[in-house]
């Protein structure tokens, strides 16, 4: 066991972990941050994406000890200080960018990382950026729409509205 210290969603945290403890297990277990999901265990599906020092990483493909001293942000840290939804979160809700919701935290975190570097991505750029986030429900259409909307760009109206 080794002690690890990091900041998660702005709060300093520490805990004893084994060398093999994955960051995702540290977040979900001792920290109780179960919004970060494990979808595949093989670092493909992206349900576990969090930010480490501002960059999107798969928390199932990183050891907790590797995040020593890092600033970690999870889906639980994405809302505004007053508890209202952040822009991306609100856009996913409003544009139906989710169904079963299991991929949603990872999608939101990936979208945030994209918009940080590329505030007005094209549809093609969004598609390419989300290559490592699998959604089995939506067919991705509304997810792309939500990210376009969150970046302040026009979104084609939903046909039935």
């Amino acid at each position: 066991m080794s002690n690890v210290t990091m900041k998660v969603n702005g709060k300093p945290v520490s805990g004893d972990v084994e060398g093999r403890t994955l960051l995702v297990d540290f977040l979900r277990g001792p920290l109780g941050l179960t919004g970060t999901h494990v979808g595949c265990d093989t670092s493909q599906c992206g349900a576990c994406v969090v930010h480490v020092n501002g960059e999107a990483v798969k928390a199932c493909a990183m050891f907790a000890l590797e995040a020593e001293g890092a600033e970690v942000r999870t889906i639980e840290g994405m809302a505004e200080a007053d508890g209202s939804l952040g822009t991306i979160q609100a856009a996913f809700q409003e544009h139906h960018g989710l169904q079963c919701g299991f991929c949603t935290p990872g999608m939101v975190m990936s979208a945030a990382a994209l918009l940080k570097d590329n505030p007005k991505p094209s549809e093609a750029e969004i598609r390419e950026y989300l290559e490592g986030n699998i959604c089995r429900c939506t067919g991705y259409h509304n997810i792309v729409k939500a990210i376009l909307a969150a970046s302040g760009q026009d979104v084609p109206a939903i046909a039935a509205e």
Binding site: G32, T34, G35, H37, T74, Q93, H96, L98, Q99, I158
Partner: peptide, 23 residues
């Protein structure tokens, strides 16, 4: 009406619980 999913807010904040998330 085209209302959003009832749990959308829970999903986008990571608060929606699945079996493995139940304390």
């Amino acid at each position: 009406k085209p209302l959003t999913h009832d749990a959308a807010r829970l999903h986008v904040t990571g608060a929606a619980r699945y079996v493995d998330d139940i304390p």
